[in-house]
Amino acid sequence: MSAASPSAIVTSPAPLGRWGVWVLLAVLLLGLLSTWLGPDPAIQNLDQSLAAPSTSHWLGTDHLGRDLLARLGEAVRVSFWLALGSALLAVGLGTVLGLCAAWQRGLTERLLCLCADGVAAIPGLLWVLLVAALAPGQKWALYSGLVLTAWVEFFRLVRSRASMTLAGDAVQAGRLLGFGAPYLLRWHVLPPLQSDLLRLWSYAVANAVLAVAALGFVGVGLRPPTAELGLMMTEALPYYDEAPWLLAGPVLLLVLTVAALQSATRPHERESA
């Protein structure tokens, strides 16, 4: 069998990627439907404490008698709003700074690269932990810490790709014809970046979900009675032997969500016939 030529390799959506999209839709549907159809996740009923899964409580209840399914739905909403918001801010900040570095070059580029290297020198979760520790339980602190760690990857990608595009013949011809920066960025620089930015954004969302859960698990993130996956794991640990479903629910939901986010936009190569 002869080796396939480069032209015979085409990119198509990966089966795992399609699976990730369906899982994400199911998780988001859980968060939305639990708002309208489920009980209040904050209502306590000590008579139903640590109740096993049943028709009245599909996933059982926690140590305070709160419905676990309703709390998982609230945790999905909280985690996704934090993750999506911080990732959008990070992609905006990283893209703007990357374009600025690629366009201005010189001292501006060196200063921005130095700033990015300084942020990247410290582990991302440590940055989030340090910022969140300034105001425990406050969402703005979580947003700030997540954006601070995520923008560097977008900056490096945009700076590298934009620098090559700006040095190309198409952009140079556009400049000679008198086209301004908005036109060149809109039609020549940004289009090739869109797929890579989308893929990197999905990983940033997954990392943000993990970071929020990790902070909640160590007690620095959101505060009770807010339902959050990491916080729910911490609350469930003392009752692991008596009610293992308490820990299984948030753990499985976190694993599925992160795996789906990381695979939803993953490219897949196959040989054309």
Results as ranks from 00 to 15, higher is better:
2 S>F: 06
21 V>K: 11
110 R>E: 12
188 H>N: 07
167 A>I: 11
57 H>K: 06
223 R>F: 07
158 V>G: 08
135 A>G: 10
257 T>K: 03
155 F>E: 03
134 L>M: 15
257 T>I: 02
258 V>Y: 01
168 G>T: 05
86 S>F: 01
4 A>N: 08
36 W>A: 14
129 L>W: 15
70 A>P: 12
111 L>T: 12
202 S>T: 13
137 G>D: 10
245 W>Y: 15
106 G>I: 04
137 G>I: 08
155 F>I: 03
187 W>P: 01
19 W>K: 00
98 G>V: 00
161 R>Y: 04
80 F>L: 15
197 L>C: 06
141 A>K: 13
120 A>V: 10
200 L>W: 03
214 A>I: 02
61 T>R: 10
122 I>L: 14
112 L>H: 07
218 V>C: 11
82 L>Y: 00
184 L>V: 09
107 L>T: 09
170 A>K: 11
231 L>S: 14
133 A>H: 12
175 R>V: 14
4 A>Q: 05
116 A>R: 07
27 V>D: 03
98 G>N: 04
157 L>P: 05
219 G>S: 09
237 L>Y: 01
228 E>W: 02
252 L>T: 14
175 R>Q: 15
243 A>K: 10
3 A>C: 02
237 L>S: 02
11 T>S: 14
225 P>M: 11
109 E>F: 01
134 L>W: 14
248 A>R: 05
85 G>D: 06
7 S>R: 13
60 G>A: 07
214 A>P: 05
255 V>N: 08
6 P>K: 13
57 H>C: 03
40 D>A: 01
36 W>L: 14
105 R>M: 04
175 R>E: 15
192 P>E: 13
149 T>N: 09
217 F>W: 11
166 L>W: 14
118 G>V: 12
182 P>D: 05
151 W>G: 08
249 G>T: 09
194 Q>Y: 03
154 F>E: 09
104 Q>Y: 09
40 D>K: 04
23 V>F: 00
195 S>R: 13
50 L>G: 08
170 A>Q: 14
57 H>A: 08
164 M>E: 15
47 D>S: 15
153 E>Y: 05
169 D>R: 09
45 N>V: 01
226 T>F: 03
124 G>C: 07
202 S>A: 15
202 S>H: 11
228 E>A: 04
200 L>E: 10
52 A>L: 13
117 D>A: 11
235 E>I: 01
130 L>M: 15
172 Q>M: 12
116 A>W: 00
119 V>T: 13
25 L>A: 15
20 G>I: 03
259 A>K: 12
1 M>Q: 05
125 L>V: 13
33 L>D: 00
150 A>P: 01
3 A>M: 04
13 P>V: 03
34 S>K: 00
65 G>K: 07
91 V>W: 02
92 G>N: 00
73 G>H: 07
237 L>V: 08
242 E>N: 12
192 P>Y: 11
